[in-house]
């Protein structure tokens, strides 16, 4: 039985440490970019699904279809579809773009749901009042509805983002150098699997646990009455 303790100094040599630290950053940046773009897209989708703003039922229906479709495809399959779709379109894009797009697609679907739930959590009489004062739908959304909806939107969005940070591990399948790929590479170089995968499990834990704590904190914080 290999002793992890004996292997530790050899594993965390200068080269490997830099390699792992870069991968850690890569995972963070990939998650951040994907979730950020996805959140913005989800916003647009949620607005398109809001009856008070978009009165065209066809467009509302399309937005719903988008959400339902991307929500129901496993990340790995989505990754493959995006990868080959880019290839099909002839775009010569980086693997980072492919992975980030996949995350953004997933994020757009769940954040559209969260943001819609947030918008719907605000009493409809707020829309009535804004409407009769001649505020347009988008103005009412920005000035009246969203300020009251953030507390419902943000905590679950952060929890879902944790899910996507975890999903970035699947992007190792197309060879982007995030943590899981790096662990596999180190494992192939002869380091023990327990150490390779164990150490990145801890690194994922650090990211996800902090994010979850932050989400819990925000939930309490935003629930306070005077937070506008």
């Amino acid at each position: 039985m290999p002793s992890i303790l004996e292997e530790l100094p050899r594993f965390f040599n200068y080269y490997n440490s830099i390699f792992l630290a870069k991968a850690f950053l890569y995972t963070l940046v990939l998650s951040f970019v994907g979730c950020g773009v996805g959140f913005l897209a989800g916003f647009v989708l949620a607005i398109l699904r809001t009856r008070r703003i978009n009165r065209w039922a066809g467009l509302r229906w399309l937005a719903t279809l988008w959400v339902e479709v991307w929500r129901r495809i496993p990340f790995l399959v989505k990754l493959m579809v995006v990868f080959f779709a880019f290839q099909f379109a002839g775009g010569n894009v980086s693997m980072f773009t492919v992975a980030a797009t996949t995350i953004a697609l997933s994020a757009s679907a769940f954040s559209a749901e969260n943001i819609r739930a947030g918008i719907e959590s605000v009493h409809p009489n707020q829309w009535d009042a804004a409407e009769t004062m001649n505020m347009g739908g988008l103005t009412a959304l920005r000035r009246v509805i969203l300020p009251q909806a953030w507390s419902v939107i943000i905590p679950p969005s952060m929890t879902y983002s944790v899910g996507l940070v975890k999903s970035t591990s699947i992007a190792s399948q197309i060879g982007v150098l995030e943590m899981t790929s790096v662990a596999k590479i180190l494992n192939q170089k002869g380091f023990s699997a327990a150490l390779c995968f164990g150490s990145i499990l801890l690194m994922y834990f650090v990211i996800c646990y902090s994010l979850n704590r932050l989400a819990a904190y925000m939930e309490v914080r935003l629930a306070l009455p005077r937070n506008r």
Partner: peptide, 26 residues
């Protein structure tokens, strides 16, 4: 202009802001 049974004041604004918002931005 209409005043509602349930007041429908904008919950995220002070009394003053409730009164000034539409004249200024609309």
């Amino acid at each position: 202009a209409i005043v509602f049974q349930q007041f429908n004041l904008f919950q995220n604004m002070t009394a003053l802001r409730n009164v000034t918002i539409a004249p200024t931005i609309v």
